[in-house]
Write a protein that binds this DNA or RNA. Sequence first.
DNA 1: TAATCTTCTCAGCCAATTTTCAGCCAAAAA
DNA 2: TTTTTGGCTGAAAATTGGCTGAGAAGATTA
Lengths: 226, 226
Amino acid sequence: MRILVIEDEHKIANSIKKGLQQESFAVDAIYNGTEGYDLASTEDYDLIVLDLLLPGMDGLEICKKLRDKQIHTPIIMLTAKDQVEDKVKGLNSGADDYLAKPFAFEELLARIRALARRPKNTITNTLAIEDLTLDTENFVVKRAEKMIELSKKEFSLLEYLMRHPGQILTKDQIINHVWDYDADVLPNTVEVYIGYLRKKIDNSFKNKTILIHTHRGFGYKIGSPK
Amino acid sequence: MRILVIEDEHKIANSIKKGLQQESFAVDAIYNGTEGYDLASTEDYDLIVLDLLLPGMDGLEICKKLRDKQIHTPIIMLTAKDQVEDKVKGLNSGADDYLAKPFAFEELLARIRALARRPKNTITNTLAIEDLTLDTENFVVKRAEKMIELSKKEFSLLEYLMRHPGQILTKDQIINHVWDYDADVLPNTVEVYIGYLRKKIDNSFKNKTILIHTHRGFGYKIGSPK
DNA sequence: TAATCTTCTCAGCCAATTTTCAGCCAAAAA
DNA sequence: TTTTTGGCTGAAAATTGGCTGAGAAGATTA
């Protein structure tokens, strides 16, 4: 799956690129509109992440030109929150989805997954580890068939952990994925949220295996054994 | 159920595609007339959604050609409002139904359901949750046998909720389904309408179960338990 | 045309969630 | 063993999301 990111703010472009690569997509990042358009129209990408405001040629224009050229690659448009989202939508640019800045990386990932969810429902949208399940579409989390109520952040954090089972994730990684890219939260916040999750999915099931593990100095991991 | 969407405005084509897939139809979208015609005449679809104005070959022409070829796949024709609907109808192109742009997705869905209901009235058109019923054909809503008067929007929102019982629907999803695709309403509007519905179907029945539930940060859900 | 109904936005309120802080404990290092 | 560091946790503070009454604007009906 090849993805092209056209975004002039290097910080954002690179964090998107890094994040997507980590999810094993092949990513090219380009920092201005004209070059972006050239690449998009000559190379064959599976998806384009496109900033609305760009030097050279702006997002709307790129989008329209590509569609005019009968290039139907799915496009996700990034818009600054105050950039009159609605107007953009009305303008019929041909983008497939919109995402307001600043966003959490997992948010972008969710939309990419939605667009990539090609023809059939071949893709499961339920993640599972042991008897813990998380339905990404209906926002339902259960352990041993028992419903667990989570807040939005808790859910998002758990989803991130469960998409990387058995893998140690550092607090930094967690912050970069689960929180808005310009949010500026302390690592302690992650600890607090891990605490919340534990209370709900481990502590409430005393006789069950512990699923959330701390690796002191490294990070957290979800999975059966330590 | 395989559906072919022939529509050159990507925004519309894709939102239809996405919405129909969510309803678990298998959907192909094609953005120009010629290709659309080729697909429609070679592949075997159960239904075609066809825009009137298209690059390549326009909707009327496609329609006629298909009928000439003895292809009787049901066709829903999309027409811009000012495109003199009546004239189109008069032209007897062979389409089975017409829908004026811009439309709410649920509107299209209703017509698709109607056409799919072809082989006799095998399908119930009354939705029910506990003692709340909604007759999609006669636009009658009752709780505990008591009639409830709803406005058009309220009805449409309730229908959408009731077609997805027990499922959390986000405000975005709701807006995309219940409002015209180019409408540009705030999420707060959904809150307000949920409020109206609650007043009529929950608050008026103090001794009954509450049916409309909020899941803070996620969306709304209709169903018996929380 | 006036009266009424419907749709939608806005602003203020309240409650739930998110985030920080400070003190504590346990593991690792010295 | 002592010290240091990293992580845990209860509680308070800050922020956000959702609800609601009021009302403007548009649509429909009488």
